[in-house]
Nucleic acid binder design. Sequence first.
DNA 1: CGACATGTTGAACCTCATCAACCGACGTGG
DNA 2: CCACGTCGGTTGATGAGGTTCAACATGTCG
Lengths: 240, 240
Amino acid sequence: MRLAVRHCEILRCDTCAVRHQAVCNAVGVDGLRDLNRIAHHRHVPAGRVIGGDEDVIFANIQSGIVKLTKTLRDGRQQNVGLLFPPDFVGRVFSDTTPYWSEAVTDVELCTFPRAGFESLLKRYPDLEHQLFEHTLDQLDAAHDWMLLLGRKTAQEKVASLFLLITLRTPDIDHDDASEENSASFVLPLTRADIADFLGLTLETVSRQITRLRSTGAIRLTKNHGIVVPDIDALKAIAGT
Amino acid sequence: MRLAVRHCEILRCDTCAVRHQAVCNAVGVDGLRDLNRIAHHRHVPAGRVIGGDEDVIFANIQSGIVKLTKTLRDGRQQNVGLLFPPDFVGRVFSDTTPYWSEAVTDVELCTFPRAGFESLLKRYPDLEHQLFEHTLDQLDAAHDWMLLLGRKTAQEKVASLFLLITLRTPDIDHDDASEENSASFVLPLTRADIADFLGLTLETVSRQITRLRSTGAIRLTKNHGIVVPDIDALKAIAGT
DNA sequence: CGACATGTTGAACCTCATCAACCGACGTGG
DNA sequence: CCACGTCGGTTGATGAGGTTCAACATGTCG
């Protein structure tokens, strides 16, 4: 009996798309059972704010893209993070979230209630360690982005963002199986999203995209599709 | 005997200026002894790079200010962090440091060798937890800074930096003991430093400082002294 | 098909970067 | 002691990169 139940519980994680990359990969069987007990799956449609009102503050991203935004009082807005599977959403150990989380595409989340998850962090140091490493990676990414925001030109900024998406989107199409230097993906962000992310206006973004297209660095296809024929060339444009 | 020795070891931490704020505050007597065993005090003169060549990768700041900078290949430069006592310097759990650490003022450090410190992190989860919380704070600060870099005007940027320094500098002079709304401090950064921090040029920084002075938001005194007569007014200029 | 959001393009404007001259403080060496 | 170079800072003139405002095009969905 007991075995059957446990098997059933663990099965939920077994079918998880990010089972072996997400922070929960660190915990053993016991931890997984405890996590499972408080976890809820949730679908969030594109454009919806995550965890604004309710208890859905912490979550693993199973699929989709989430953006974190901050705003000034007068409405000026800046995206401070872009999260992909298997990233973790939420600011642990704080009563207030210093930003808004919003689904950019349709998103599948494995959510955890705040209190329950934080007590599991205490109980399983390996889980906390994994989250710590994830946070360190986020901090590195934030530093990279500060360099972009402070010192890169509009052209470099747009190229950098496309590069980030090609590198982070899972199951990206590498058009040439043998040649990994090209890729294509569907651009999930609007021009306004991109602008908020790069500290530009949407008009400037549009112009820079046209320019990238006219120089052959990218091609636009139907339905927001983007083809990067030469990733290294894009890297060169993006600067370092 | 044993007691005497232990007392002696702990005494080093007892005289530490940041004993109760730094990450090591989390560990008990045993942990403190182990930390002490691998800790070395080090003085770093202003302008010197920290941990470039040697093993001094991790450290608590006891006094002074440290900046973290990243550069593009062509020399464009961006400061991605400003650390005050009792902040922790160093990127744990990674072979490479993604930025340069440099002493802005003369700095007193309590340094730890890499391997030794990381093994203590494993042994004392409370220490790791404390460092985790510190990293989360750093990430929040980085997000704030991204908003500044992406969306604030030059005037707001300079005001924001002065505000940061008034709020983070320890034992700052509050000119009016009863009225906490004014402050004065010594500006440790050159115009070029400030520019690298705000994503501006040093000329623009200079002009904005002159402008802040002419509007009465700040006053400049001898030896790089800065007086903020009305912190709330500076906050208003800095935006939110 | 029409309506509304999303994206593109144009023209004028403005903030900030760039290039350059200059000032004062400081330290060094003749 | 003063001449000199260096360094940090200020100020000016000019121009480029990006913003702003506006019109128009393209989707996309009922």
